[in-house]
Every structure is written in structure tokens, then in C-alpha cells.
């Protein structure tokens, strides 16, 4: 099988491009990190790519509200390329700041959904248990129903225009939730939303930071107990599957 080509965006304060590329590489993709300014110069930049990932970060310092400035740059440069990638069955993932950006691109233009400041007013970096529930996304096929993943954001509260949540649910785009009450006050405890048959996923938690088993906060206890029982812990955590799904979906 030909190795699918994954483009990971970088620049202007995005900062999770390398670990996101690592996760996709581990999942079997051929990964390339490109600065948005370089991609913008090349009309064919995405023409043979199958996966586009917009990683986490702090693009433009969130100065105008998270994601706005980068989305403006993206819409001006890559709008057609991204649309074409989605139309030919490609997979698009926005993580954290990437999700904030993705919601402001034309892919979500009519969805009536956005990400607003956390209800508690402060940035939150902590682990959460997530539920794969509601609609369906090929990104999330075969993942455990519940898995743990860290969040790290100040603007992660999913909010909807009137009727937006209902439309999203009707289209099966409500794909990922916090298992408990959303730590940021998100509507319907949503942690991730999808469109285009679930192939375009915008999620606030960071799956690339839960990729390896030592990422998990309970790892050291689990490792001690496993050693006593003569078991080996798996090297990878539950989210490797998410990245593998992008590779096998094609």
C-alpha cells in the first residue's frame, strides 16, 4: 500500500507540529511539516496529500480571539486546496488551536458552531476522560468508548448559534464528549465536532499527548503493578488508533 501523505501546518505560533507529525508517522503516514507561508506560494501544495492536520498552539497569540488570524490566512491561501482534499475523500484534523482555526474555515462556515473562552475564565491544562458518542467519525472508529486525553486551552467551550447544535446532531457531527461535565462549560459536554461525514474533525483535547503509555498520569502506578504481575504495558496509549484511522481510511 502506498504510504499516505500527511501535511502538518506550522507557523505564526502553532507549536504542536512535531509531536503531531510523530503521531502520524507512528501510525504509518508519510509526514511533512510546512509553514503556512510556504504552502500559500504553491497552488498544488495539497494536491497529492491525503491528510491535513492543523496542530495545537497559540497562533498569533490568540490576540484577536483563538484561531481567527490563522484562519484568515488559511482561507486566503488554501481554501480551494483544502476543499479539494476533502472532496476526494481526504481526512482533516484540527487539534486545540487547530480546532479553533478549523471552525473558522469554510469547512465549518455554515455550522453555527464556535469555540468560546472557558467558562471558568482560565486556561486549563489537565487530563480528562473522553467518550466517543453521538455521531460517527472515521477518525474515532474502533477507539475505546472511553479514553483519557489531556486538554490545554483557554478557549475550548463549544458554543452554538440557535439551531446549530440540533443541526450538528442531525448530521452526526457530535462525535466526542467529556465523560463528565465539560471542564470548560462546553455545550452538551462536547470535546470534538465533525463534518463532511466525520472526515473533518475539530477536537479540543490533544490525542498526540496521549499517544504513548507513559503520557498517562497513572502510568507509574500501572507500570509498578504490571511489573509485579509479570506483565508488559503496551508502548502506546489509546489514541494511536485515531491516527491509524486516518491512514487506513484511505
Amino acid at each position: 500500500m502506498k504510504q499516505p501523505r500527511a501535511i502538518i501546518l506550522a507557523g505564526h505560533g502553532l507549536n504542536c507540529e512535531r509531536e503531531t507529525a510523530f503521531a502520524l508517522t507512528q501510525a504509518g503516514a508519510h509526514t511533512e511539516i510546512h509553514h503556512i507561508n510556504d504552502l500559500g506560494q504553491d497552488v498544488n501544495a495539497l494536491s497529492d496529500a491525503h491528510i491535513l492536520a492543523i496542530p495545537g498552539g497559540f497562533s498569533f497569540g490568540d490576540h484577536l480571539g483563538a484561531g481567527k488570524a490563522f484562519a484568515s490566512a488559511l482561507n486566503a491561501r488554501l481554501d480551494d486546496g483544502i476543499s479539494a482534499l476533502v472532496e476526494r475523500g481526504g481526512m482533516v484534523l484540527g487539534i486545540c488551536n487547530g480546532a479553533q482555526i478549523l471552525l473558522k474555515t469554510t469547512l465549518f462556515a455554515e455550522a453555527g458552531v464556535t469555540l468560546a473562552p472557558n467558562a471558568g475564565g482560565s486556561y486549563l491544562c489537565q487530563w480528562e476522560t473522553l467518550r466517543v458518542t453521538g455521531g460517527a467519525s472515521p477518525w474515532l472508529t474502533g477507539l475505546h468508548d472511553r479514553f483519557d486525553c489531556p486538554i490545554a486551552h483557554g478557549e475550548g467551550r463549544f458554543a452554538f448559534a440557535p439551531g446549530g447544535l440540533e443541526s450538528l446532531k442531525a448530521a452526526g457531527g457530535d462525535v466526542l464528549r467529556y465523560a463528565g461535565t465539560a471542564p470548560n462549560g462546553a455545550t452538551d459536554d462536547l470535546a470534538g465536532v465533525a463534518t463532511h461525514g466525520g472526515r473533518v474533525l475539530a477536537m479540543m483535547p490533544h490525542p498526540e499527548r496521549a499517544l504513548l503509555s507513559h503520557h498517562h498520569p497513572d502510568f507509574h502506578r500501572q507500570a509498578v503493578l504490571a511489573r509485579r504481575e509479570g506483565r508488559d504495558l503496551p508502548a502506546f496509549g489509546p489514541t494511536l488508533k485515531l491516527f491509524e484511522n486516518a491512514v487506513t481510511a484511505l
Partner: peptide, 8 residues
């Protein structure tokens, strides 16, 4: 409040 997980 301090991102201690970035860079994974």
C-alpha cells in the same frame, strides 16, 4: 494554568 504537556 501552565501547559506542562506540550511537546508531548
Amino acid at each position: 494554568r501552565y501547559d506542562h504537556e506540550v511537546q508531548a
